[in-house]
Design a protein around this nucleic acid. Sequence first.
DNA 1: CTAACTGCAAATTCTTTGCATTAGT
DNA 2: ACTAATGCAAAGAATTTGCAGTTAG
Lengths: 151, 151
Amino acid sequence: MGWRGAIKGCGRRMTVPREIIISVLSDATEHLSAEDIYFRIHETNPAIGLTTVYRTLELLTQMRVLNKFDFGDKRSRYELTDQYSKKKHHHHLVCTQCGRIIDYSDFAEGEACSIACTEKELSEKFNFSITSHYLSFYGICPDCKEKNHEK
Amino acid sequence: MGWRGAIKGCGRRMTVPREIIISVLSDATEHLSAEDIYFRIHETNPAIGLTTVYRTLELLTQMRVLNKFDFGDKRSRYELTDQYSKKKHHHHLVCTQCGRIIDYSDFAEGEACSIACTEKELSEKFNFSITSHYLSFYGICPDCKEKNHEK
DNA sequence: CTAACTGCAAATTCTTTGCATTAGT
DNA sequence: ACTAATGCAAAGAATTTGCAGTTAG
């Protein structure tokens, strides 16, 4: 079932703003904030307000169409969940100096398997129904390393 | 070198508020927000302001004495980094329904090793200097599962 | 038709800043 | 003494809410 079905399936309505917001998210390669989305939409659809963007993102997050992330700057960022995304499931590599984020999905030998095993062990041990996970590595990117070296 | 040394080592001063804030964090079992810390301190030290708590947390985070987390509610939460903590390095298991967070550090067979291997592979592949990682699993805790069942 | 959705402006909430005062070293 | 650190009040920034008008089904 596509996201349209998910929305209508629970008594909600398909609207122009929702359609556009998801299409922006679907085309995005980066991790967009509410304001990012608002500005992209605003050029072609100035009638759509920031409030609607926030409300739509909240709704879609609750419906598990979107994941909501926080990378340290104070704005929340969103991306489609695996189920609805063109991109494969991925983890993040975050530069703590410049904020650059690399998505990687060509998991190292054993990484994916290990996560799956851990998930299974944890769900048994703590009796949790695990639905997802989030793995990020933090460090200094090549560019920042170079800049730091020059000083 | 303890955190006191870290602070003095870079020309900063040891003060009563800093001492108290770290001791609260050191004793905490949960993940405290700035306000949590402020209230705990306030009972015995009403002279210490919330601003100082924020400034201290910011400083200590920059010095890598603290890790700053975000678990979805909008407040930031803090805990001592492995180097300064009584607790072992751990990962998180978060209930998406009630917000409960379980720390686990008795890593499953292979989990710790796999993270270390992945870290090494990524740092070579992307030429990143990786300093830390963050792994969380999300799901529904036993209590919430039960509650959902009753309905 | 009617209830969900929207936009605007105002309100909230968390966090940061300006500035005069206090207190480590 | 010198300057970092503090507390207060005020400012800032991201997000949420109240409400009257709009629109999908």
